[in-house]
Design a protein around this nucleic acid. Structure first.
Length: 490
RNA sequence: CGGGGCGUAGCGUAGCCCGGUAUCGCGCCUGCUUUGGGAGCAGGAGGUCGCCGGUUCGAAUCCGGCCGCCCCGACCA
């Protein structure tokens, strides 16, 4: 009886756990079209908070939002050779409109480089028109074979930044800057530590010069690529005649970058923090940070306690200690006829970071009883100074989540692996990140993928590299060109 | 597209082998009693048994075809 109320545990079946959690916490639901999903208010609320935090950072770094259309002429995709090769198989094509076949089919954007650089070309004459720093929030469509809620669906929501610069170095700095913005967001908001680094040739974006990424480790020890930033070089500028007249009077092609993160991050949030009781949301992204459950027996008690609960909510919401616009987000669950225990389970499933219980005993003592979602630690908090105490506790939860996730990642990261046999053992067993040498040859990368399903997640940035660089290639034993991170990935 | 599994009430299922118009749990509605970790009792609503066809007096059940979904592979934010 109680059993079917419980989730499949992570240990039993991680993938079933994830699916059940997403459905039961009402983050998302399957839509009638295979591979696409509805994002429900609980999930969309998290996405909205992600959007707001990121959008602020994009603005701070000088970007402006704009919107480019969903439909792109099919011919546009074909103008950049590797881009078309990379995306052609997963592009949805519109062939009819207004009841008639179209003269030229339209593609539904899988990403917007082509249309955006076409427009940039129209707007750019002089170096004085550069840089162009644009972001758009949009949906994109990629016809994937195998889909999973939030992690890979036919349609997803994201932002794509697109910039044009006069020089390679400026574009490079932009791509690196935005990678840093992503990393900061993922750590400070999602409390999801990431390794930043550069993608290998085979893993980079179709049409890019270089791709950088943020790689997170999920609780099943698989890697999740949570965000990418590309230095596109002049590839798209050449394909779309994006030129400008430089100071010296010569005409030159612009240098572009593009960078994006998507609703996939919601899946990352789930798989980073949640437990067998349900979702765990980092406070900064939680649509509801605090839920108050009134406890009572009689109608008389109910009246007093529910009133007190609403008073606490009002006090918390009125507190401006985090700034006038960043108020504590509080809900009172005053449903009658649902027992407190049932409410606890429900809000735990939904991932509310902090629960406050207020009953007659608490009123007598002038305190409230708190329960943390992440550690399930419980403690009484005096009513006096409650907003400050609650805000502090939420901050503690936020930082503890990041610390716990980082500790888990490090515990499952394997350095100084030099033997391929040992590597296979790790990949067949616990998995995780393996730091090892690589000769830089795509052939050895392909061999590992073929034999173990692990791929090179990135060539990590210097701060993530091992104190002593590996000397030999994990696969061939030849001298290593780079230290890379191997992992199975989503 | 290959391999595996599954379609019965909102969800999870029994029944199928051995044909007779459907079982149980959760959820939902009403009432009363409850309420500090998933409440109890009583009453009630809810079903084209995935779809089409065949066999049969009679099909959830047997036969044929089709569709859909999930999991595992080839592709990917």
């Amino acid at each position: 009886m109680a059993d079917d109320k419980k989730l499949t545990t992570r240990a039993e079946d991680f993938s079933a756990w994830y699916n059940e959690l997403v459905l039961r916490a009402e983050l998302a639901d399957y839509s009638p079209v295979k591979g696409s999903m509805v994002i429900r208010p609980n999930g969309y609320g998290i996405w909205e908070r992600m959007q707001r935090a990121l959008d602020d950072r994009f603005k701070e770094t000088g970007h402006q939002n704009a919107y480019f259309p969903l439909f792109i002429p099919q011919s546009f995709l074909q103008k950049e050779a590797s881009h078309v090769e990379g995306f052609a198989p997963e592009v949805a094509v519109v062939t009819h409109g207004g009841g008639k076949p179209l003269e030229e089919p339209l593609i539904v954007r899988p990403t917007s480089e082509t249309i955006i650089y076409h427009m940039f070309a129209k707007w750019t004459q002089s170096y004085r028109d550069l840089p162009i720093l644009i972001n758009q929030w949009a949906n994109v469509v990629r016809w994937e074979m195998r889909t999973r809620l939030f992690l890979r669906t036919l349609e997803f929501l994201w932002q794509e930044g697109h910039t044009a610069h006069a020089t390679h170095d400026e574009a490079e700095a932009e791509a690196r800057q935005m990678l840093g913005v992503y990393r900061g967001f993922m750590e400070d908001w999602i409390a999801m530590p990431v390794v930043t680094g550069q993608k290998s040739e085979s893993e980079k974006f179709a049409g890019a010069l270089r791709t950088y990424s943020c790689e997170a480790m999920m609780q099943d020890n698989k890697a999740l690529q949570a965000g990418t930033s590309h230095n596109l070089g002049q590839n798209f500028a050449k394909a779309f005649d994006l030129t400008f007249q430089a100071e010296n009077g010569e005409t030159a092609h612009a240098w572009n970058t593009s960078w994006g993160v998507s609703t996939r991050m919601v899946g990352g949030l789930v798989m980073t923090h949640s437990d067998d009781n349900g979702l765990v949301t980092p406070p900064r992204l939680a649509p509801i940070e605090v839920v108050i459950v009134p406890i009572y027996k009689t109608d008389e008690e109910r009246g007093r306690v529910v009133e007190a609960a609403h008073k606490v909510k009002a006090d918390l919401g009125a507190w401006t200690g985090r700034g006038a616009t960043d108020r504590l987000r509080v809900k009172v669950d005053d449903r009658d006829g649902v027992k407190p225990g049932a409410k606890y389970y429900e809000w735990e499933l939904r991932g509310v970071p902090l629960r406050l219980e207020i009953g007659p005993k608490d009123l007598e003592k002038g305190s409230v009883f708190s329960a943390r979602r992440d550690t399930r630690a419980k403690a009484a908090i005096p009513m006096a100074g409650l907003p400050e105490a609650v805000a502090r506790l939420l901050e503690t939860i936020q930082t503890d989540l990041l610390a716990a996730a980082r500790a888990r990642r490090e515990a499952n990261s394997h350095r100084h692996v030099t033997s391929y046999a040992q590597f296979k053992e790790i990949m067949d067993g616990p998995g995780g990140f393996v730091y090892a040498g690589w000769n830089g040859d795509p052939a050895s990368e392909a061999k590992v993928k073929e034999e173990t399903k692990a791929t090179i997640r990135c060539i990590p940035d210097p701060e993530f590299r091992s104190a002593e660089a590996p000397r030999t290639c994990l696969v061939t034993g030849e001298p290593a060109k780079h230290e890379v991170i191997w992992a199975k990935a989503y």
